[in-house]
Simulated scan of single mutants.
Amino acid sequence: MKGYVWGKVGEKAQIPIVNDRERQTYYGALNCVSGRFHITPSKKGDSQETIHFIKYLQKEYPGIKLKLFWNGASYHDSEDIRNFLSEENKGLERKDWKVECIQFAPYAPEQNPTEDIWRCGKKFIRECWHLCKSFAKETVQIRLPKAEKDRLDLYCEKVGRTQTDLIREFIRSLPV
């Protein structure tokens, strides 16, 4: 960054730059069978928060084996995570593991469907920031009866659009 200011000759002027935005971290997982996306706010992205999120998923899907596909974040392969997974899967053959974690290829966000969800969320915030009091405090959740969900899925497939695109289009069409 370059600019000009008034000051004494020969003295370096310092201009403090304040970043008023709060950092927000979220953990997310897409259930590839049901299409349900789980998202939880977190203090930060680290091993302990990752373990907390895995435990949350285990509570959401009790008795179900979890296969987690994830990116190459350093804490995904930390000693804490390896110890947690070893304890969870202790004494079980690999085919019976309660939690299995599979890493996507390095630098391959196109393999990860969650990246599209994050991208859409960020785009929505950039375009509609004035509608959001705080992304951390508000979420929109729509519950549909199975017949309506199936009908929406068929329509999306037929027209080649996502549910998110259709909902956004509907919202934009509302009179203000």
Rank of each mutant, 00 (worst) to 15 (best):
S78L: 03
S74Y: 01
I64W: 00
K67W: 00
Q58C: 04
A73C: 08
G72V: 05
S74V: 09
F37L: 06
P62S: 10
E49V: 03
K43D: 14
K12R: 11
I17T: 12
I39L: 15
G72C: 02
Q58I: 01
G35D: 11
K59Q: 08
H52Y: 00
E49K: 07
V9R: 13
K44D: 12
E22A: 13
P41C: 10
S42A: 15
I54Y: 08
Y26V: 10
I51Y: 02
K43S: 14
K65T: 00
R36Y: 09
T50F: 15
R36E: 12
K59A: 04
N71I: 02
D77G: 13
Y75K: 09
S47W: 06
T40H: 13
Q58T: 03
K44M: 11
T50H: 14
K8F: 10
A29V: 02
N19C: 07
L68R: 02
K55R: 15
W70E: 05
I15V: 14
D77V: 10
D77N: 15
F37H: 10
I54C: 05
R23H: 14
L30I: 12
F37S: 10
F69C: 06
F53D: 06
K8R: 14
K67G: 10
E22W: 01
S74A: 11
S47M: 02
K67F: 06
G10R: 03
N31Q: 05
S74M: 00
V9L: 01
Y61L: 01
G7L: 08
G35S: 12
G72H: 07
P16Y: 02
I39Q: 15
V18K: 13
K44T: 15
P16Q: 07
L68H: 04
V9K: 14
Q48G: 03
R36W: 09
A73W: 06
I51D: 02
F37R: 09
S42E: 11
K43G: 04
T50C: 13
H38Y: 15
E60F: 00
E60I: 02
